[in-house]
Design a protein around this nucleic acid. Structure first.
Lengths: 134, 134
DNA sequence: GGGACTCTAACGCCGCGTAAGCGTAT
DNA sequence: AATACGCTTACGCGGCGTTAGAGTCC
């Protein structure tokens, strides 16, 4: 199987995260590498990279890494066909909770955005108005 | 002069910050109280409160408190009629720099917002799609 | 064997939250 | 004199940035 593995530098550059961050995400169990070389180098699959990308996209929602771990794990299990139906229910509820949370954060972000845009305009006006008769 | 002073609890409640945060903003020189009682209680003027509110509005732009301090100080001096013209030029440039930065942050926030909205929709679809023939 | 890449371990930083123990206001 | 409010000091935490020194890949 053509499952090429990538080392951390390539991964970090591709996803747009620092080496430190990628290592830290392993440390907290968020995105562990699928393997290691004999010498100890981390090895990531393409799926690992996708996971990192998803995490990166979810970060602006201000979830803690702990929450993101739960979210990602639930999602994995939910998308896995081998997961039994009784477990699926639980997972779905969890995911729905996170989705609801995400929507709220989106709403707050929209509000913050317009607030911040208006205060920026205010600063700009004040700055320009502060030019005397020059 | 009817300059009433307020103590920290009132101020924090009005602006919507924690006591700790208001104290911390003094600690870093961002919003020092205009006075103290004999016994050591912090006393804030209405202007101090406005300053705190402005700081709070600017926070989502991800400035460091250090930057905010510079920004606020420049603004104060710029809005002060007593500031000499030679200094005003410098201040204006600084403020323009910060305004430019603020605009970039706004742009980034807009991008992040749409990205986050789309990834939220994705999560929602995946969650719903994961309901089998029930 | 040389250069690029990676490893672990450790400390540092920001922006506060959270006691603990004690003083002040009214 | 009671009660609410405030004070300082200090430690803790999340999410990394940043050396430092040694090992690995090819």
């Amino acid at each position: 199987m053509g499952e090429r593995m990538h080392q951390i530098g390539h991964v970090a550059a591709t996803v747009g995260l620092s080496l430190r961050t990628v290592r830290y995400y392993e440390e907290v169990g968020l995105v562990p590498p699928s393997g290691r070389t004999e010498g100890g180098f981390r090895l990531y699959t393409d799926e690992d990279i996708e996971r990192l990308e998803l995490v990166k996209q979810l970060k602006p929602l201000e979830f803690t890494l702990e929450e993101l771990r739960e979210l990602m794990d639930s999602r994995d299990r939910l998308l896995d066909d081998a997961t039994p139906a009784r477990e699926r229910e639980l997972l779905r509820e969890r995911m729905e909770g996170y989705v609801a949370l995400a929507k709220e954060r989106c709403k707050r972000l929209r509000e913050q955005l317009s607030a911040v845009e208006s205060v920026t305009r205010r600063l700009e006006r004040e700055t320009q108005a502060a030019t005397p008769a020059s």
